[in-house]
Nucleic acid binder design. Sequence first.
DNA 1: ATATGTTAATTTATCGACTATATCAAGTTG
DNA 2: CAACTTGATATAGTCGATAAATTAACATAT
Lengths: 343, 343
Amino acid sequence: MSKKNHWTLKSIAKELGVSNATVSNAFNRPDQLSKSRRESILAACNELGYFGPNKAAQSLRRGKFNIVALVLPDSIEYMVSDPVASSFMRGVASILEKDGINLLLFSGNSDSLNSVIDFVDGFICYGRPRNQSLVEQLKTVPKHVVTVDFDIDRNASVNINNEQASYEVAKHALHNKHDQVAILGLRLLDENVLCRVYDHHECEAGQSIAHQRLRGYQKALTELDIPIAEDRIWNIPESSERFASIAAKEALCSLPRPNVMLCMSDLIALAAMREALKLGLKIPEDIRIVGFDGIDEAQRFVPKLTTIHQNSEEKGALAANLFITKEEQKALINYELQLGQSG
Amino acid sequence: MSKKNHWTLKSIAKELGVSNATVSNAFNRPDQLSKSRRESILAACNELGYFGPNKAAQSLRRGKFNIVALVLPDSIEYMVSDPVASSFMRGVASILEKDGINLLLFSGNSDSLNSVIDFVDGFICYGRPRNQSLVEQLKTVPKHVVTVDFDIDRNASVNINNEQASYEVAKHALHNKHDQVAILGLRLLDENVLCRVYDHHECEAGQSIAHQRLRGYQKALTELDIPIAEDRIWNIPESSERFASIAAKEALCSLPRPNVMLCMSDLIALAAMREALKLGLKIPEDIRIVGFDGIDEAQRFVPKLTTIHQNSEEKGALAANLFITKEEQKALINYELQLGQSG
DNA sequence: ATATGTTAATTTATCGACTATATCAAGTTG
DNA sequence: CAACTTGATATAGTCGATAAATTAACATAT
């Protein structure tokens, strides 16, 4: 018996003196051949080092890949740095792994789904991709799509009620109409820059999570009759220490100095707290700071951050389950106001 | 002109009244047909909504996938939680993205490479997979393999000199022969449990990074003539807050109380510092703690952690580059003793 | 006029599998 | 003994593409 390093179904069949179909059936359709023959074939394959039908060819033929593309909002680099995104991924992976489905990472900065579309069964999109043309493609792509934290009107999706949640956390941080408020927004603008958002009225109708959260903040502000100045809202392009510190510093040094900072992520809030402490400010006496997400580090920080806890892992698991079952459901997951000493 | 939702090269060719090969050439080999024809074909394809050859079929035929499997040591879940692993991934992704190569995540707990092997051009393995049968397969798999932080004697690899680095950091933490030392090891044992390593002599010849680091520690201990008791070495199965805290607590409560803790990762060291502070111990007066990795959070902690800084992102980038160039090189990357106030 | 070369397009075999249909042998039935 | 099942295997077409070989048309050289 020759020992090739690369068997194919055909060459194995020839070696064993049976037809291709018989070998194929041995692997895929046990009912199509006698038990004894099937077993002897499988044993021989194992012996010779043929580990079963080539998956690429199989997938081409069957149109099923057992691969899901996880579309990230930004570059892959950013994704794995963000604890919220990471735990989301953890949730997705834990479910897909069980079903033997593999995960292909796909950057939301890409121009087109083309490079992966022919390899995957569909897409799970975590947040609106930065590249708008991807969003357009996702609307029409002939594969299953589950979106998370945004919606494209055709598909299954997983969301939390951002507006309500941020309303609640803002409500907690705000005390009266004399509060001086700064808002550190995460991706309020499409532009990939750190800057102030002078015309935030444009955001009022927006559907991104940043816009939803901003509306929540504004509702709380309005209820307490607190004005928000034109230049007190920042756009931070990604939830990173570096950008957040710069924005926080800017906010803390603007006059009149804010005594409340509403931050759209915990990483931003943590950076803001660090900057505030560096300036000798007391939290929450001099300034109240609240976040969003509920990451572990925020609970270990002193003072503990007041924030909205959302279970990202659960979110990931739910998204993966929706993908597997192909239910076209729009799911809303729970969140929780998590009280700390920061605001 | 009919507008199908799913064109194939063949159907497009028929529609345009040319042969398959001509359409294929229009996309892949511009020199094989006249410019005018090529342009008219591409324009027509665009018009009709055919976006180019199906990648899965193309890959089957060409044997090239533009997909690399990133083999993680553990489950995917764990991977994205670990900052060191994350920045490694960041490095890999940043290089591969440039070359249009996609990343498939693959769990090191899987039993076999089979489910992905036929879809990828090769493997980048970050750390020795927990499942030993994977390691065996990697030795013989007929695809390109780059390993990181371990070696399988056939392939390109990226490493740091763990033994020398841990020797240096231990040397810094140890003062004299009366030091009471505890070692919090990361994956010293294959078993996935938190426990003491009573027989660490078994580790002496091991090639895992944990074993290498342990040898470094031991060299420093020997030089100062410091004995290490049988029950003062812990095996922590993964670099997580939860496991690390438990082990740290155990170590800190064992008598005589250690005044030096050598930790094989920063996350472990941070957890140990938190536990020490909780017990009212002063760092470094009562206990000196050192880590390994050099993650950001360790630099923000008070007191700042003394550790070995290794540039994981660079490591990832190097691994990706080795993969792309197919050089069979064994690369060693630099590290740096990073001094804090903790040890 | 014959041989040689170039270019552009088509034909055909192939990648590695799946599956509908056809074939065949053995056993049943009327 | 023809007709009909039944159970198993073999054949050929297909998935969607690539690439080697081939043909046809035309240009240049001897």
